[in-house]
Write a protein that binds this DNA or RNA. Structure first.
Lengths: 236, 236
DNA sequence: TTATTGTTGACAATAAAATAACAGGAGTGT
DNA sequence: ACACTCCTGTTATTTTATTGTCAACAATAA
């Protein structure tokens, strides 16, 4: 593929969205689309769409637009979705299990091969056919099986150490759901999913829009709900 | 609170992260911190930290730095975390259940009051004490109970309609896990969590770092794993 | 006291991202 | 085949975000 100039993160973050919309168009048997039409659908300026795509090559044709199927497949290649990825889940709690049960990952080529946990009640079980192993076995597993991505869904007290171990044993990507910022070698790639952070930004916006002028104390009284003091525990 | 100049989205997205770090400092009984020290911990420039915080007021003191507890509480107020939020989950599948089971939400004041689904096997059950109702009852519920946020974890075929209904019935915020971009009135706030998109950007980066020059076909052969054609089904 | 160091808040400079403008090739209709 | 429209790829402009700098002031030490 091409490996010339550096692509900006903003562009990379938009790629999956293009991919999703093009997939939708493909399902609707739409064979061609112009940046202007796509712009209307996606709420992005046509200019940005063209500029984004041109980072990776000229996929369109003047006077015609973009061929949907061709562009879809090109973006698939750019994202690296034309191969299989082997993944493991570390932490078999709520979120870990939910991800294992999410069948669409497999359809896209993201295969969860194993789950690791410390809980004796989980170890030995299978979740949708995927076995749960003791974390003690993780080193052996990772060293003997290809693991592209480790999905970290464990308490933050353990996340940092586990991430470092996995990095040491050769795992290249970490999809991190634990509530902490990982410190890993620079050749290891981390993508954070901080669900609570995401919810908090939503709450900020709700407050800004609906309660910004208002006295907060009044608002409490209105709801009749006193705020309980928070004592933070270990969190997943 | 203050409602003068518009705060940039980039700043708002960083706020929860400041809040998290300050919470950590508080737990470590650190009472004061300078932007420089925080900069080192968070990998953000000290300049940006000061500028971010000064969007909301001067919380620091020259020659001293910031009082951790004071700043923590100020950010809490800014984010609107000093009150309770009533939430419902729409879609009782994997992710919906995982979120209900995530006990830390409640500790922070985010209370999930009800789950709605269409699956008869789920309806009537309780998940960690939270009842699962038929979606038919959702309108009545929303109209008679305060709902700040609806958590949407349903297939995308249904998500758009449900979101519109909820907006019509007065729900102000949508935390959207379904694989689609919602079209809602502009006074309704949506925060998207597209997990698959997040994973795809990680895969892009892995490919860029490790396989960018390489011929992809070769790579397939190396793994011995042919790519199966994907036929997209309904996804949650 | 008085000097010295540390640190903010404000603002200036730089960098990054988004949008707009446009030249020119490709399609379309006559 | 010719004119005309559509639409890309690319360059220019504007907007937004980040970083660097410094005066003013607080804390601390002499």
């Amino acid at each position: 593929m091409d490996s010339e100039k550096k692509i900006s993160p903003a562009v990379i973050n938009r790629l999956p969205r293009y991919y999703r919309y093009l997939g939708d168009l493909l399902e609707s048997d739409i064979t061609r689309i112009s940046s202007k039409e796509l712009s209307a659908k996606m709420n992005i300026t046509a200019s940005q769409i063209r500029q984004d795509l041109n980072n990776f090559g000229g996929f369109g044709q003047q006077g015609y637009g973009y061929n949907v199927e061709y562009l879809y497949n090109e973006i698939k290649k750019i994202l690296g979705l034309d191969r299989l990825y082997n993944m493991i889940v570390v932490g078999g709690g709520n979120i870990g299990q939910a991800l294992v049960n999410y069948t669409n990952f497999e359809k896209r080529g993201f295969v969860i091969k194993a789950v690791f946990d410390i809980n004796p009640r989980l170890i030995g079980m299978t979740i949708r056919g995927v076995e749960v192993y003791d974390v003690d076995q993780m080193e052996a597993y990772v060293k003997n099986n290809p693991v592209d991505v480790a999905i970290l869904t464990l308490p933050r007290s353990q996340a940092v150490k586990v991430a470092n171990d996995l990095a040491k044993w050769g795992v290249k990507g970490m999809w991190n759901f634990s509530h902490v910022d990982l410190q890993v070698p620079e050749d290891v790639l981390v993508e954070n999913v901080h669900l609570t952070d995401s919810l908090m930004t939503l709450l900020y916006k709700i407050n800004e829009m609906y309660y910004s002028g208002e006295d907060m104390h009044e608002h409490h009284l209105k709801d009749g709900l006193p705020m309980k003091p928070l004592k933070e525990n270990e969190e997943e």
